[in-house]
């Protein structure tokens, strides 16, 4: 995994690919924070460019920061707040305020670092794992295990072990990004221990 600090150092060395990598890494987070803050599409687009410009200007200062998520989150929220403050109409104000309330409720202590780590970790899982975790945990439909197995064209008996492998892979990816907790449980099968996990590939028979 290329760390943020490495990408920043490569940007400063003149590598445009590293700049693209940084933007792509944080684009979804910034976009989400801006939209959640109540900005409309057009204002959010302007604010996005403003965040990118500030990131560009502050690269030198951020060169030794291992994880940029906190800086990106704080900067994005500040810019969103300023943008709302500049442009909001009464209606917009109320709408934004409502969304902000919903947001505060949804956050429940989750940090922007955790959110970014989860985005990156999910991005590093295979498509099949992502789909499985999505169906089991991230969708509100709450399908039964039978239904999930059917949607994934997977024997029902394979669902549990596959789910465990995918969750372990997710845990490893999160740990790499500084989020998580070491699970020290003697009941954890050896195959699920750190370094031994293997998320199922897309063509795995589940």
């Amino acid at each position: 995994m290329i760390t943020d600090a490495e990408l920043v150092r490569r940007c400063l060395a003149g590598e445009s690919d590293a700049w693209r990598g940084l933007l792509e890494r944080y684009a979804d987070l910034v976009h989400a924070l801006l939209r959640r803050s109540g900005l409309d599409e057009s204002s959010a687009e302007d604010a996005f460019q403003e965040v990118a410009l500030l990131l560009w200007k502050h690269l030198r200062r951020l060169r030794d920061v291992e994880r940029l998520a906190s800086w990106v989150g704080t900067t994005t929220r500040r810019i969103a707040w300023r943008s709302r403050h500049r442009t909001r109409t009464r209606e917009g104000h109320e709408s934004a305020a409502r969304r902000a309330d919903v947001q505060a409720e949804a956050d429940r202590g989750a940090t922007v670092e955790e959110e970014q780590a989860l985005r990156e970790a999910l991005g590093h899982l295979g498509a099949r794992c992502r789909e499985l975790l999505s169906l089991l945990y991230f969708q509100s439909s709450e399908d039964s295990y039978e239904e999930v197995a059917r949607k994934l064209s997977m024997p029902r008996g394979s669902l549990g072990p596959t789910r465990a492998r995918c969750l372990e892979a997710l845990r490893q990816e999160l740990l790499l990004r500084g989020v998580g907790t070491e699970v020290s449980d003697p009941a954890v099968p050896a195959s699920l221990q750190a370094g031994a996990s293997r998320p199922p590939k897309d063509d795995d028979e589940a």
């Binding site: 684009a27 976009h31 989400a32 460019q49 989750a110 989860l118 991230f138």
Partner: peptide, 23 residues
């Protein structure tokens, strides 16, 4: 927290590619 975050991420659209290219 991760499940709440995951559900939220799932519902949100990705950042438009055009924004990234511009930046």
């Amino acid at each position: 927290r991760l499940v709440v975050l995951g559900r939220r991420i799932e519902q949100e659209s990705p950042c438009p590619t055009r924004w990234v290219r511009k930046a």
